[in-house]
Write a protein that binds this DNA or RNA. Structure first.
Length: 352
DNA sequence: TCTGGGGTCCTAGGACCC
DNA sequence: TCTGGGGTCCTAGGACCC
C-alpha cells in the first residue's frame, strides 16, 4: 500500500481539561483526576493530571498516594466517566462527520482518520487545523494531531508535541524521525520489553534497526517481526470502524485487604449481576466465566470455566463465579481485589 | 511510594481428535 | 515396547494500552 496519509487525534489531558471547564475558578492550578487520595492513604491511581500538576511530577497511572505527596495542595477530583463519555461522543461525531474518511475511535479520547484520498500533506494539514478549530470552538478543548504515512507514525507524531500540537511526518522523513527515538515509543513496547531490548543494547529505534529479523523473532516471537517492521516505520494496519466486543467484566479493589467471606461473596455476587446487566444491555449471551483474584501481595490469579453452550442466565453466572472463587477463599488469605469477566460472547439476535 | 478499571492480544501446556 | 504429526479448544498467566 503506498501513498497513505493517516491522522491521529488525541485530546489533551482529556479528563482534567473537562474538569477545568467545569471549575473555571481552578484555572492554572494543579488538577488531578483519579482515586481519592484520602490524605495520602488512598489506594488507586491518577487517571489524568493537567499540565500544572504535571510540573510536580504527577502523571497518569501513578499511585494516588504518591501524587498526594508530590503536591498535597493539588485539586483531587473523582473520575466522572459518564460525563466525559458524553463530551467524547460529541467530539468523535464531529471528527467522523468532518468528511467521508475511514474513521476509527480507539479510546475515549483518541481516534484515527485515514485521509489518503486527500493525496497531499498540505490538504491533510488543513483538515487537521480545521478539526482542532472546530473542536475548540464547540467544546473549548484542545487536542494534538499527528499525521504520517500510517497509524504507527501518526500516533508517534502526535505524541511528540503536546498539548495543542500538530506534527506532520512526510514519508521521506519517516526514518530520520524515528531513528533517534527510544524504543519505548513503539507500539507494544512497555516497561518489560524496553528492559529486555535495553539489555540487548537496543535503546533507540536506530539500534533496533540494526538487529536482524531472525534474532528478533527468536527473542520476541511473533512480536519480533512487528518490531522489525515498526523500526522501519512500516505498519499496514487499516483504519476501520469495527470493534466487536470480546469480553465484559468488572473488578473492584477493596478499601482495605480482606478475607471476610461474607464480604467477598457479596462483592462477587454484585459484580456478577453488574456484568450481567451490561450483557443484557448489549444483548449478548456468554459462554466463559472468569474470576480474577488479587491477594494482598498483588499476586494475581484467574480461574475460568467454559460452559457447554451459550447462556444469558444470571443464576449460572453467579453460581460459576462463586464456584471458581471458592478454592481461593478456602486459603483464607487476604485479598485486595476480586473481579468477574465473561467472554465467548454471542449476540442474542442470532437465535440458535 | 505501592500498584484502578476497562479492555486486547499472545504464549504455552494439556486434552482430545483424526 | 515404543511412540507420528497436525489441528483445535481450553486454561492460566503476562504484557500492554488508555
Amino acid at each position: 500500500m503506498s501513498g497513505r496519509i493517516v491522522l491521529h487525534l488525541d485530546m489533551d489531558a482529556f479528563f482534567a481539561a473537562i474538569e477545568e471547564l467545569l471549575h473555571p475558578e481552578l484555572a492554572g492550578e494543579p488538577i488531578v483526576v483519579g482515586a481519592d487520595p484520602k490524605g495520602g492513604r488512598g489506594r488507586g491511581v491518577v487517571s489524568t493530571a493537567n499540565y500544572p500538576a504535571r510540573r510536580y511530577g504527577i502523571h497518569s497511572a501513578q499511585p494516588i498516594s504518591e501524587a498526594y505527596r508530590l503536591c498535597p495542595h493539588a485539586h483531587f477530583l473523582p473520575v466522572r466517566h459518564g460525563f466525559y463519555g458524553k463530551v467524547s461522543e460529541r467530539i468523535m461525531r464531529l471528527v467522523r462527520d468532518a468528511g467521508n474518511y475511514p474513521f476509527e475511535q480507539v479510546s475515549i479520547d483518541e481516534a484515527y482518520v485515514e485521509v489518503s484520498k486527500l493525496a497531499s500533506l498540505s490538504k491533510a494539514e488543513k483538515l487537521a487545523r480545521e478539526l482542532k478549530e472546530k473542536i475548540f470552538e464547540q467544546e473549548k478543548l484542545t487536542c494534538t494531531i499527528g499525521i504520517g504515512p500510517n497509524r504507527l507514525i501518526a500516533k508517534i507524531a502526535s505524541g511528540r508535541q503536546k498539548p495543542d500540537g500538530l506534527t506532520i511526518v512526510a514519508p521521506s522523513d519517516t526514518q530520520k524521525f524515528l531513528d533517534p527515538l527510544p524504543v519505548r515509543e513503539l507500539i507494544g513496547v512497555g516497561p518489560k520489553t524496553e528492559e529486555r531490548l535495553n539489555a540487548l543494547g537496543i535503546k533507540t529505534i536506530a539500534d533496533l534497526r540494526k538487529f536482524p529479523k531472525t534474532a528478533l523473532a527468536d527473542g520476541f516471537g511473533k512480536f519480533g517481526a512487528t518490531l522489525f517492521e515498526q523500526a522501519r516505520g512500516r505498519d499496514d494496519r487499516p483504519v476501520e470502524e469495527k470493534h466487536e466486543v470480546k469480553s465484559i467484566g468488572q473488578q473492584t479493589t477493596f478499601a482495605e485487604d480482606t478475607n471476610n467471606r461474607g464480604l467477598l461473596l457479596k462483592t462477587l455476587a454484585t459484580l456478577a449481576s453488574d456484568v450481567h446487566g451490561q450483557l443484557q444491555a448489549g444483548t449478548f449471551l456468554y459462554r466463559t466465566v472468569t474470576v480474577i483474584i488479587r491477594f494482598a501481595n498483588f499476586e494475581t490469579h484467574t480461574s475460568s470455566h467454559t460452559l457447554r453452550k451459550h447462556t444469558e442466565s444470571i443464576a449460572t453466572l453467579k453460581a460459576q463465579s462463586l464456584k471458581l472463587a471458592l478454592p481461593f477463599l478456602q486459603s483464607r488469605r487476604k485479598m485486595r481485589l476480586v473481579g468477574v469477566r465473561v467472554s465467548h460472547l454471542l449476540p442474542k439476535t442470532i437465535k440458535r
